[in-house]
Amino acid sequence: MTATQIDLLQSAGSASQANLSIRLERTEVNAIAARGVEMVYQSGTERFQALKNIDLEVKSGDIQLLMGPSGSGKTTLLSILAGILTPTSGSVSLLGEEISKLSSSKLAKFRLENIGFIFQGFNLFPALTALENVEVALNLKGIRRAAAHRQALDLLDQVGLSQQAKRHPQDLSGGQKQRVAIARALAGNPRLIMADEPTAALDSHNGHAVIELLRNLAKEKGRTVLIVTHDPRIIDVADSVAYLEDGVLKSGVRTR
């Protein structure tokens, strides 16, 4: 089955068809596929190979963890898989699209339509309210003011922050900020969620809340979630864990 066929099934609208498509994606289509990815940084005569011949496949609807010690290349790999960095060699396919071959403008459009990002540092716009932070993401996707306002409120409600919609990020706790970031990542219903250390800056309670939200994204909403993390608590909800060390993918563990 091709990605186009899956799209058709998803757009058919009925719950059974959507479930069918998700089930088929999980079993037959890789949402993320990396082949022979290498990344070399060159600075003068200095040459540093951050990633060495990475092969990785993430099935649709899975929660995939990327773990490993600091400096192992996790964030570099995440940047490449998200289409933010271009690998020195190798190819990356997202949702069946070979993104390595896309122009930068098409790649940006692909990210806009298909990927939601969650950052360790939240990366919220401090001058905007929680609501406006989510609205901006919706506006970028072409959703107009009134509809964006309505959807943003709905997304904040989904992460339990509708009461804090008018607050600015500096008035929110770390956990609340990350939930706003998750609401923003969900804007426009992207099929891929890429998260970089989403629980690193959070205490135990907020960490668990965020983990639960991520689990829901995959298990109830069918999103494919790629998470770079050091946090062992997330392993419990992951479908697969890949360990990276010195730029080499050491092992992959299928947890379920």
């Binding site: 998200a82 933010i84 403008s105 940006a108 459009k109 692909f110 990210r111 806009l112 339509e113 990927i115 990002f117 950052f119 540092g121 990366n123 716009f125 401090p126 993401a137 970028l140």
Partner: peptide, 16 residues
């Protein structure tokens, strides 16, 4: 800069 980087990562065009 980080905010502009975030917009770029999210897929905003340079023109935005």
């Amino acid at each position: 800069l980080r905010e502009f980087g975030t917009l770029k990562a999210m897929g905003a065009s340079n023109w935005v």
